[in-house]
Write a protein that binds this DNA or RNA. Structure first.
Length: 467
RNA sequence: UCCUCAGUAGCUCAAUGGCAGAGCAUUCGGCUGUUAACCGAAGGGUUACUGGUUCGAGUCCAGUCUGGGGAGCCA
């Protein structure tokens, strides 16, 4: 794996006894360098592990001692030395250096310091911030969380479907979309009516970046039974909040022969599984979040893993909220969508754990959601979590073609735009359900990071796509 | 998009309308086991931008840009 018998710091921390009093070769970057007259200490991070390894170097045993003293934060090194135990010291072991070679120098205008930086500043150097403790932890956890999601579905025989990133027209209605075009915007061809003639565009029609893979996933669910998508999603909303981005990742499972209860069971199992997986496989990172980002994080997550999620219907929720209407700026009333303050009250005050809110009025939900027998509500569910709000939105889909068509017409949409989606009902259509999990929102909940921009490597938000 | 707060040294922040400051970082020096090491010294400024009020503006006013927090939209 590593040439020249090179060892990683992760290997040493995971099995130190295998390396004690042995010579090891390391490579990495200086996180800090302190020197005294005749000796010095380097904190080395090699990217393989959250923690650093301390390198001790001494004047009498290192020929380039005077040069090493001057090396600054960020310098890339190749180090050879003996791993020794250091009982009683703050670090468990360290390397007594025999040779230290500079692989890549780092001049003194390097923006990162040993000191703490604000997240705002680090966003302005998004290409360097993964070298900091916090972002090292965030992005290793992001990688693990992705893996845990695939593992969860794989173990349940779900088929992973790659739904298209570029989609035809805006037939999905989940939000404002980014246009995809090869037309020259200054000299776009026009139709006789004066609009842009997308027939001359690359695809011969108007196309956009996807806002959801759901409709495509439904097609595959009605062939493979249980499927999921996990990919990038784009919304051109001018949203300026800590929990919205223009480009984010979404997990969208879809199950045939499944109702809303099955849908919620899957969502609850998944959240518990993936959180448990990351806690067990990234203990150093999770302890760091628990100590420095969000005190009480692990206790809260362990509570999520071990307790049952709350369940309440929209109608019941409104009844509770109406009794407390004096505390809200927006008064709760049946038929209105729940405000953020309402959702927070329910999940943070009433339940103090994740809760499913189900059976919303049909007029505030999407056209494809299945109409309940009361004729007023649909089989929808939102999963609300303390601190973040909505993390999952899902529903049982309307499988009855005549009811779906009625809804499409009611909303002024055109049946022909949904011809293939309607075919899924016409040919062997069955009841089915699915949901969308905001991957970054799960990241925020899992790490305690409070801004979505700090859980995406190079975030895209309004007026911001520098990197 | 709306409300609100902010923008001063590389970073984190001070400065009643009256001389532009500190800590850290950087550079130099000191120190025989440091842990955000410590001690001493030096260098470092278009106070976001444009205009205005004033004898005098980092400070007051107007506009613009960028960022934070909140709301809407949603995941």
């Amino acid at each position: 794996m590593q040439k020249e018998n090179r060892t990683t710091i992760r290997q040493i921390y995971r099995q130190p006894e295998a390396y004690y009093d042995k010579r090891v070769s390391l490579s990495g970057w200086i996180r800090s360098n302190r020197d005294s007259k005749l000796f010095g200490f380097i904190e080395l991070n090699d990217g393989s592990f959250f923690k650093n390894l301390q390198i001790v170097y001494e004047d009498h045993s290192l020929e380039n001692f005077k040069d090493v003293i001057r090396l600054g934060v960020g310098t890339a090194l190749a180090v050879e030395g003996i791993l020794v135990e250091t009982p009683g010291a703050k670090q468990p072991f360290e390397i007594k250096a025999e040779s230290i070679k500079v692989e890549g120098p780092c001049p003194s205008d390097y923006p990162l310091q040993k000191k703490r930086h604000s997240f705002e500043f680090l966003r302005s150097i998004a290409h360097l911030r993964p070298r900091t403790n916090t972002f090292s932890a965030v992005f290793r956890v992001r990688s693990l969380l992705s893996y845990a999601i695939h593992k969860f579905f794989r173990e349940r025989d779900f088929v992973y479907v790659h739904t298209p990133i570029i989609t035809g027209s805006d037939a999905e209605g989940a939000g404002e979309m980014f246009h995809v075009t090869t037309l020259n915007l200054k000299e776009a061809p026009l139709t006789e009516e004066g609009g842009i003639d997308f027939g001359k565009d690359f695809f011969g029609r108007e196309t956009n970046l996807t806002v959801s893979g759901q409709l495509s996933a439904e097609a595959y669910a009605l062939a493979f039974r249980n499927v999921y998508t996990f990919g990038p999603t784009f919304r051109a909303e001018n949203s300026n909040t800590a929990r919205h981005a223009a480009e984010f990742w979404m997990i969208e499972p879809e199950m045939a022969f499944a109702d809303l209860q099955d849908d919620m069971m899957l969502a609850e199992d998944m959240i518990k599984y993936i959180f448990d997986y990351v806690i067990r496989h990234a203990p150093e990172e999770m302890n760091f979040f628990n100590s420095f980002i969000d005190k009480g994080l692990l206790e809260r997550l362990n509570n999520v893993i071990s307790s049952e999620f709350g369940r309440i219907t929209y109608t019941e929720a409104v009844e509770i909220l109406k009794k407390n209407n004096d505390r809200f700026d927006y008064k709760a009333e049946w038929g209105m969508d729940l405000q953020t303050e309402h959702e927070r009250y329910l999940t943070e005050q009433v339940f103090n754990k994740p809760i499913f809110v189900t059976d919303y009025p049909k007029d505030i939900k999407a056209f494809y959601m299945r109409l309940n027998d009361d004729g007023k509500t649909v089989a929808a569910m939102d999963l609300l979590v303390p601190g973040i709000g909505e993390i999952i939105g899902g529903s049982q889909r309307e499988e009855r073609l005549e009811l779906l068509d009625a809804r499409i017409r009611e909303l002024g949409m055109k049946e022909e735009d949904y011809w293939w989606y309607r075919d899924l009902r016409k040919y062997g259509g069955v009841y089915h359900a699915g949901f969308g999990l905001g991957f970054e929102r799960a990241m925020m909940y899992l790490t305690g990071m409070s801004n979505i921009r700090d859980v995406i490597p190079f975030p895209r938000t309004p007026k911001s796509a520098e990197f």
